[in-house]
Every structure is written in C-alpha cells, then in structure tokens.
Design a protein around this nucleic acid. Structure first.
Lengths: 129, 129
DNA sequence: CTGCATCCTGGAAGATACTG
DNA sequence: CAGTATCTTCCAGGATGCAG
C-alpha cells in the first residue's frame, strides 16, 4: 500500500481482516460441511465421502488437506492393509463449529422470510420486463 | 439428528441445508464486508465504495442487488439532483451480523495458531520435496 | 481404501468505458 | 452521484482414470 493513498475507512479495514480470515478458511464449497461431518469424532475418509452428499473424491481430498494445513483437523494414518486414515477435528475447529451454530440457527429462523423477499424481488423485476 | 451414533447421509444433508443457506447468501467476496460497512445506519453508495477498500463499482452494485434481493438490506432512492440512494440493513441482516461477530472473534483468537499450523505444514511439505 | 494426475467448464470478479 | 454495459481473465470445482 503506497503512502500517497491512505485508506480513510480504517474502521472497515480493521474489521475486514478477521472477516477475510474466517472466509478464506471456510470459503470453499465443502469446508464447513466437512467440519460438521467430522464433528462427532475420528472419521474415516470413506465415511466422510458417504456422509457428505454430492462431494467428489477429489474435492474431499483437497478440502481435507486445506483444513489440515490450517490446523483445523488432524490426519492419522494407520499403516494397515488396507490403509485406514482417520480425521479428527482439533480444538479450535470444534470452537469454530460452535460459532457456526449460531449462523445455521439464523438461517433456519429466517429462511422463509428470505425466500419470500427473493420471490417478491423477482416478481417485481419480472413485471418491469 | 437420529438416534444412531454415526450420522448417516441424511443427517448431514439435514445440517447441510441451513449451512448452504448461509453460505450462498454470504458467499461472495464482498457480501459480508458490505453488511459490516452498512451496519451503522443508512449509507450512501459512495460511502460504501470508499469504506470498502478494493471493491469495484460493479461488484458493489452486484453485491448490493443480491443483498437487497434476499431482504438483507433496503434501497431507498431520493429523487433529488444529484441522485441520492441510501442502503440500510434490515433486522434479519443485523441479526446475521451479530452471529458473524462470534466468527470474527474466533478468527482473532486463533489467527496466530492457524498461521503457525500453516507454516509448519508448508515447511514439512517443502522438506519432502 | 485412500488417494493423486489430468482435463475441462461455468461463473465470479477485475478492467474499462459510457450515462441519466 | 449512482449506476450500466462489455470484455476478459482466472480458478474452484466436476469428471474421469490410474495407483500404492
């Protein structure tokens, strides 16, 4: 950031950083679902694959790697045949999950309102067309 | 949640829906920042543009439209010259913002831990290369 | 069972220019 | 002031196949 261009809305910038933190960590299409699916304890790869409807093997792998990289879950390889790998949330991931609960709660409480608003908006837009 | 210990696919799906709800609404790169920036009361377009560092006029417009469509904010046009448009969060958006606070709080509390985990992970990956 | 390598596509978002 | 209209770029994510 140059010295000539000082961002004057520092309040937003200050808030934005942690927001970006969370977002970048949780942004993916599957991250949160994996966190939820892994919440109940050590879970195997295939368990996750089965419990998260619609996820591909590739995306599950990528998502798990990212979460592991950020220290949100641990990966334990049991050198058996066939291989057995278990994933488990770390403490901070469990904390994160708690925070997510209030979000999902919000979604549940207001979903009908939001649908209604959306329908109304679209109806009005259509009528102008 | 069912009585069984191991969540089957349906359990995750049940949880996944509200999660998707939130995500889809807040997913964009700018949505949350706009919500935060508009939190303190009626805000004009240009105010938002200035306070959200890095956002383009186009993306601000698109984001505002989406939030309005979902009933998260209201758009009030004052037919003056020059035009004056004010945006304001709705009640449910303010509620959402409250929920987001616990997330940002999480991010702040654990950011250093996460950075450390990431560095460690990357270091290990590099050493295997 | 648990992945990785590759190819490919849709859509999000940036750059730029114009307008009531 | 508060937008629209295009064009373009980029990459998350899907599909498929192979492997230890």
């Amino acid at each position: 950031m140059s010295r000539t261009q000082v961002p004057q809305a520092s309040d937003i910038v200050d808030l934005a950083c942690p927001v970006r933190e969370v977002l970048d960590r949780v942004a993916g299409k599957w991250s949160i679902l994996v966190i939820i699916a892994a919440a109940h304890g050590p879970v195997r790869f295939t368990e996750l694959e089965r419990s998260i409807a619609g996820i591909s093997r590739r995306m599950l792998t990528l998502t798990l790697r990212n979460l592991e990289r950020d220290g949100l879950l641990t990966r334990t390889v049991h050198p058996t045949v066939p291989p057995k790998v278990e994933y488990e949330l770390t403490d901070i991931a469990r904390e994160l999950r708690e925070s997510l609960l209030s979000l999902t709660d919000w979604a549940v409480r207001h979903r009908s309102t939001i649908y209604a608003a959306r329908s109304a908006y679209d109806a009005k837009a259509a009528e102008n067309a």
